[in-house]
C-alpha cells in the first residue's frame, strides 16, 4: 500500500510523516510521532480524549485523517506547557485535584484552553456544555468544572 507524505505543523514545529490513507490524525500522532498524550478512548468522536486543535478549531483527532493535516497547524497537549511552566489550567488541575486516573485529562485541558480563549468568563453551564464531549468516568466532573471556572477567574484577574 502506498503511503502518503504529509507536511504539517505540530505544536509550532514543521513536521513530516508518512501515513496510510485510512490512518487518522490520532493514529499518526500516537504511532508515527510518539505524541501519545492524545488518547484513544472510542475512535468514534464520543469521548474527546483525543482532542487537539486543528487550524484553531477544537476537533477529535480520531475524526481527522492524517492526510488531511497537509499544510495545517495542529496543537496537542504536548504543546500546552511552555517548557517547565505549566499552563494555568494544567496547574489548576493538579492543585484542585481535577483528575483521578488522568486518561481524559489531556483532552479536557485542550478543550478547556480553547474555551477560555474564546470566552474568558464562561458560566458553569457554558463550561459543562462545552466539555460535554469530553467523557470523564472518575470525577463526576465536579472538580474539573470548578478548576476551569477558578482558572478563568484567575486569568481574568491576571490580565
Amino acid at each position: 500500500m502506498s503511503r502518503i507524505h504529509v507536511t504539517t505543523t505540530i505544536n509550532g514545529d514543521e513536521t513530516e510523516y508518512l501515513c496510510e490513507p485510512q490512518d487518522t490524525l490520532l493514529d499518526v500522532l500516537r504511532d508515527e510521532l510518539d505524541l501519545t498524550g492524545s488518547k484513544e478512548g472510542c475512535a468514534s468522536g464520543d469521548c474527546g480524549a483525543c482532542s487537539v486543535m486543528l487550524d484553531g478549531r477544537l476537533v477529535c483527532s480520531c475524526l481527522v485523517l492524517g492526510a488531511e493535516a497537509e499544510g495545517r497547524a495542529v496543537e496537542t497537549i504536548e504543546g500546552m506547557a511552555s517548557g517547565e511552566e505549566l499552563h494555568p489550567l494544567q496547574q489548576a488541575f493538579i492543585d484542585k485535584a481535577a483528575l483521578q486516573c488522568g486518561i481524559c485529562t489531556p483532552g479536557i485541558l485542550v478543550a478547556a484552553k480553547d474555551l477560555l480563549e474564546r470566552n474568558p468568563d464562561p458560566t458553569e453551564e457554558e463550561v459543562r456544555y462545552w466539555l460535554a464531549g469530553n467523557l470523564c468516568r472518575c470525577t463526576g466532573y465536579d472538580k474539573i468544572i470548578r478548576a476551569v471556572l477558578d482558572t478563568a477567574a484567575d486569568m481574568r484577574g491576571a490580565a
Partner: peptide, 9 residues
C-alpha cells in the same frame, strides 16, 4: 450535532 469537537468538523 455532536460535541464541541464534532461541531468543529
Amino acid at each position: 450535532i455532536g460535541s464541541t469537537q464534532v461541531q468543529g468538523r
